[in-house]
Design a protein around this nucleic acid. Structure first.
Lengths: 232, 232
DNA sequence: GATTTGGCGATTGTCGACAATTTACTTGAC
DNA sequence: GTCAAGTAAATTGTCGACAATCGCCAAATC
């Protein structure tokens, strides 16, 4: 009997716990806007709706708190995270710091197998950039590119931190609603980053990353401010 | 087991939740080495020892997981985090990235009330640097200086991220055991950081921070490697 | 004798109920 | 009519119990 090859595809069992399933449902509901920001997340209500007890719901909510999707107030409960324009700016500043560091290490250590992955991800982004694909798909393809950078950096802390704020970033983008028109253009601003990475040009890669993130930030913040004005 | 440990310098807020109290006790037990690394944290045992049920213990452990003090394996439970020399290096690299960014923003926005706090913290570090103070006090005074930098940066994400890895840093330092001899010297390497901050010299402040963190890293890693060799 | 398989003990996963706390409402006084 | 206090409803905080799962060890098989 030869044991199962533990190559790359080493996950035959999809048995994910109840907590993860609840967390995924909740996060999807939040990101897709089914739950509006500031809304209360009643443990009892969610538990009843999903047909489970409060315990796994509570743990799932705690997980989402780490991802910044919900906030928790003692003796008050969980609420869908609401973002101000200021917090949004802070989020993008933070992303720039983390990803810049990841880019530096990635270049210093050599890209390795990340090279092919990044190139492939650019292709993927172009593929889903056109109409016919929903925004969630486009956003996730975008995030995946940045995730690959952090994953390849060699320091797991960069990836961990990125994962924590990735959901938050998705949330803000989905909140905006229609970044759709600019999906194609935004996708192309990833190319200079990749080019610089392939040339092992550290300064240029960081600069391209800075430009890309600041463009995205300005786009999001601008739309966000418009929405705020409309609601006032 | 000691009945009461009310002697720590925190506010005895009765309004503090049971979860936080458990989390604090556990983290203290881990940092002070009462719980050795790799050791299992049985929910039932901890709950029985503290006279509470498993629910708050479980939540507290989840909190500690975010701080990197324990790791969680599905259907297996919680274990006290064990660190390799490699992870330790990654931790300090990460700290350098976060704190450098915080320093830059701190200078750009102006120090404000952080100035007095930082100066006062240097005094505090000198006060507890000598003999007669236990290492935990010295380490916490050190961490508080860095915490103040992140707190004053204007971007709460820097502080949040710092808090997540602060415990982890304390853990590694306490693991080493006796950084004691160098407490005085290490304390003084904070001074150049403060000086540069007061002069609003961004480049110099970052450089001083880099030097300080790398000195600390080398000290810890070196001692850590010695310990590893002894155990082999 | 080595490997597999079945059962046993222990631990985590989940649940429903009760206690503590907060919020909203009602009632009363000014 | 407004504000305050008291009370009731709803929600979170905590608990003990039961079910599902994992690791270990002995027995059985080749």
């Amino acid at each position: 009997m030869d044991p199962k090859q533990d190559s790359d595809g080493f996950r035959p069992l999809d048995r994910e716990g109840l907590v993860q399933r609840v967390a995924r449902l909740l996060s999807k509901a939040i990101v897709t806007g089914q739950l509006s920001q500031g809304e209360r997340l009643s443990e009892s209500v969610v538990a009843r709706q999903l047909g489970v007890s409060r315990a796994p719901v509570r743990e799932a909510a705690r997980l989402l708190e780490n991802s910044g999707l919900v906030t928790y107030l003692p003796n008050r409960g969980f609420f869908v995270r609401s973002m101000s324009a200021r917090e949004l700016g802070n989020l993008y500043e933070f992303r720039l710091v983390i990803e810049s560091a990841a880019v530096r290490r990635l270049i210093r250590d050599g890209l390795g197998e990340s090279e092919a992955k990044l190139i492939g991800q650019i292709e993927e982004m172009r593929r889903v950039a056109g109409p016919g694909f929903d925004m969630l798909t486009q956003v996730e393809a975008d995030m995946q590119f940045h995730r690959l950078i952090c994953a390849g950096s060699g320091n797991p802390k960069f990836l961990n931190t990125f994962e924590q704020i990735a959901m938050e970033s998705e949330l803000t983008i989905m909140m905006i609603g229609r970044l759709y028109d600019d999906a194609q253009r935004l996708a192309e601003t990833h190319v200079p980053i990749l080019d610089a990475l392939l040339r092992h040009d550290e300064a240029e890669a960081v600069e391209a990353l800075r430009y890309h993130i600041e463009v995205a930030r300005d786009l999001v913040v601008e739309q966000f401010r418009k929405m705020e004005d409309e609601q006032d």
